[in-house]
């Protein structure tokens, strides 16, 4: 390493890589929140989330292409992706709950759904990488020798707002109360007059909408959109969600940042080809020490 980097560069590189990692980590955190929401209420790994994220970016791109303007395109993307989330739940997952199917059936269903969405995207939007407009690019911001992209700052701020917003929904609204009740005991909740199916659909809507926010922001940062974009990012975001304690929203953010920063440092000190599995190595280590993740709650039984 020392052969490549001169000594006074090392400090700059380390700090620069920290910022690179934080920006990347924020992207993971945004997607991880969606996994966490659904897992929190259903104890289900929603494998279709990566495809939903890709869907949102394509929808935004479609409306930008149709000259809707940037802000309406983003809003439409958020709403439509939220509806897609509800559709997935209503068409595929709700019937399974009605049948009292085994949890693994839901897992396979989400894998199937992911297949359907991703391949439909490939058919309608082609597989090539498409250019995505840079929404929030106001140039670079310099701190001494360290540079930060303005989009990174926007991503950071929006993620925080989203997180606070979701936390408020869960803690302060009636819907949030119903969500928490359903999470703890859905049968008891429905006996208390809570329409659990509605609550779950609402959760899927929030999950889809958060995926859309992530999709628009991250695509705006990298300016690339393609149908397979959600796969690897989705897996790593999922690892981040579990790392922080799945079902706990602030855990997702912490998990995302940890994964992002460690990936960035792995690329620095080991080489970029190692970075993809760093998330999983850290995840396994954390799970062995703390089986429910950093901030996780106990008592998770379902698959």
């Amino acid at each position: 390493m020392s052969g490549i980097l001169t000594r006074n560069c090392v400090a700059t590189v380390i700090i620069q890589q920290l910022f690179n990692g934080l920006a990347l980590g924020m992207a993971y955190a945004l997607i991880a929140v969606g996994y966490s929401l659904v897992f929190g209420i259903l104890r289900l790994i929603n494998f279709s989330h990566g495809a939903v994220y890709a869907f949102s970016a394509h929808i935004a791109l479609l409306f930008v292409g149709l000259n809707f303007g940037i802000i309406p395109a983003i809003i439409l993307s958020i709403v439509l992706t939220g509806i897609l989330g509800v559709l997935i739940d209503k068409t595929a997952l709700e019937p399974l709950r009605m049948n009292n199917s085994i949890p693994m059936a839901s897992l396979i269903t989400t894998i199937g759904m992911s297949n359907i969405i991703q391949n439909l995207l490939m058919i309608f939007f082609n597989t090539e990488r498409k250019s995505f407009p840079a929404f929030f690019d106001f140039g670079m911001i310099k701190f001494g020798s360290v540079q930060v992209n303005s989009t990174q700052v926007v991503m950071f701020v929006v993620s925080l707002i989203l997180l606070v917003f979701l936390t408020l929904i869960i803690n302060k609204t009636k819907l949030g109360l119903a969500m928490r009740a359903t999470e703890q005991n859905s049968k008891a909740a429905s006996l208390m007059g809570i329409n659990t199916n509605f609550v779950i659909s609402a959760t899927f809507f929030l999950g889809g909408a958060s995926a859309a926010i992530a999709g628009v922001l991250i695509s705006g940062y990298y300016q690339i959109v393609y149908p397979g974009m959600g796969f690897m990012v989705g897996l790593k975001a999922f690892a981040a969600a579990v790392l922080g304690g799945i079902g706990v929203l602030y855990g997702s953010v912490v998990g995302g940042l940890v994964v992002g920063v460690s990936e960035s440092y792995a690329a620095t000190f080991m080489g970029s080809s190692y970075r993809d599995s760093v998330a999983f190595i850290i995840l396994i280590l954390v799970l062995i020490i703390r089986p429910t993740g950093l901030f996780g709650k106990k008592d998770i039984k379902k698959v």
Binding site: T12, V13, N20, G21, A23, L24, Y222, G271, S272, S273
Partner: peptide, 19 residues
């Protein structure tokens, strides 16, 4: 720097090359 397919973030590699 060798980078993996399917990740769109190349900033760690670029930082290294630049340094």
């Amino acid at each position: 720097e060798e980078v993996m397919e399917g990740s769109d973030d190349y900033s760690p590699a670029i930082t290294k090359l630049n340094a």
